[in-house]
């Protein structure tokens, strides 16, 4: 890697003030599993002048539940979330999502904060040495739309950018289904409002803003949540499509549902059509399948990714049945 300067931040305030001083020339580093890959491949025209290490800030690595709210520090490793008994018990979709992310080693390193702030994986965008200076890097065109788009969005591009790169996170849909909130150094943001598509950006965070913790309200007693993921290999690989659901029911009938797909659209994709269809139904194959079909009713696949529509539909169906 090319040289950069490195600062071990000791407090959030210190990290924020370093970010302010450097402007867009500094990057935060948590587990580093996403960031270092980008730096090694020099995918962007700009290389960070400084890295600000968040791991040296005490008190950002914890899991606790108080007053029916689960709190997870931004620096908490995915493996710790996956094996935590409280998370597995009350917030199954999140534990399952963390458990299906990347590989065992990457889960020991990667943090939840880094997971929701990670960059896109479009192979044109990620090609070494900024070979494809596409729209998402501030360039003039999208190479995926005319090239190989087998892993791109099936629900259209982002309006402003015409970019079809999907959001790759496994924990994001679980956090949205569970109606979590993201606490930052400045404000609290609903997980559903956290993701945004801009040039070299995937979230609504300002340049000097840091995620400090995640808050997840405990689902009601009559609710169950679940997460499913389809990937080429069971491990290491990013999702082709994943889906998380939180479904409440009484007397066997669905009374409320929150369903979120990811890796199928430029942001996590709330399957509100599927939610409407499944409410009032019992847990059975046919109704879950109908909800799956409703979820993809607005799909507009690209030339090479039609297969993802079928997968998205099945992911919705399986996520619903996992909550039964």
């Amino acid at each position: 890697m090319k040289k950069f300067s490195h600062v071990n931040a000791l407090t959030i305030d210190e990290a924020v003030s370093i970010l302010r001083r450097y402007g867009d020339r500094a990057s935060l580093i948590a587990g580093g599993t996403d960031l270092l890959g980008k730096m090694k491949d020099r995918i962007l025209s700009r290389y960070p002048e400084a890295l600000v290490n968040l791991k040296t800030i005490p008190g950002l690595d914890f899991i606790k539940e108080e007053n029916r709210i689960l709190e997870i520090g931004a620096l908490t490793r995915l493996e710790d979330i996956a094996i935590d008994q409280t998370v597995r018990g009350g917030y199954a979709a999140l534990a399952q999502a963390a458990n299906r992310t990347a590989s065992p080693h990457l889960r020991e390193m990667g943090t939840i904060g880094g997971n929701i702030c990670q960059d896109i994986r479009c192979w044109y965008y990620r090609h070494p040495n900024n070979r494809f200076p596409c729209l998402r890097k501030g360039g003039g065109r999208c190479y995926a739309i005319e090239g190989d788009n087998r892993y791109h969005s099936i629900f259209g591009g982002s309006v402003e950018e015409g970019c079809y790169a999907v959001h790759p996170s496994d924990t994001a849909p679980a956090l949205i289904a569970l109606d979590a909130e993201i606490r930052t150094s400045k404000r609290t943001i609903k997980a559903g409002d956290f993701f945004q598509v801009e040039v070299t950006k995937t979230t609504v965070l300002d340049e000097d803003e840091i995620v400090t913790k995640i808050l997840v309200p405990r689902p009601p007693e009559n609710a169950k949540s679940g997460f499913v993921k389809f990937a080429l290999r069971k491990t290491i690989d990013f999702p082709i499509v994943n889906c998380a659901a939180l479904i409440s029911s009484s007397e066997g009938k669905v009374s409320a549902a929150r369903i979120c797909l990811n890796a199928g659209y430029v942001k996590p994709y709330r399957a509100s059509r599927a939610e409407e269809v499944i409410v009032g139904k019992t847990f059975n194959e046919a109704d879950a399948e109908a909800a799956g079909s409703a979820a993809v009713s607005e799909a507009k696949p690209l030339p090479h990714n039609g297969y993802m529509v079928q997968i998205a539909k099945t992911m919705v169906k399986r996520a619903i049945l996992a909550c039964g």
């Binding site: 490195h6 071990n8 580093i29 580093g32 599993t33 270092l36 890959g37 890295l51 290490n53 791991k55 490793r77 493996e79 065992p104 080693h105 990457l106 020991e108 390193m109």
Partner: peptide, 13 residues
């Protein structure tokens, strides 16, 4: 105690 990838870890950290 954690199995981690030394290629994706900065020595300075």
């Amino acid at each position: 105690g954690r199995p981690i990838l030394s290629c994706m870890t900065l020595a300075i950290e």
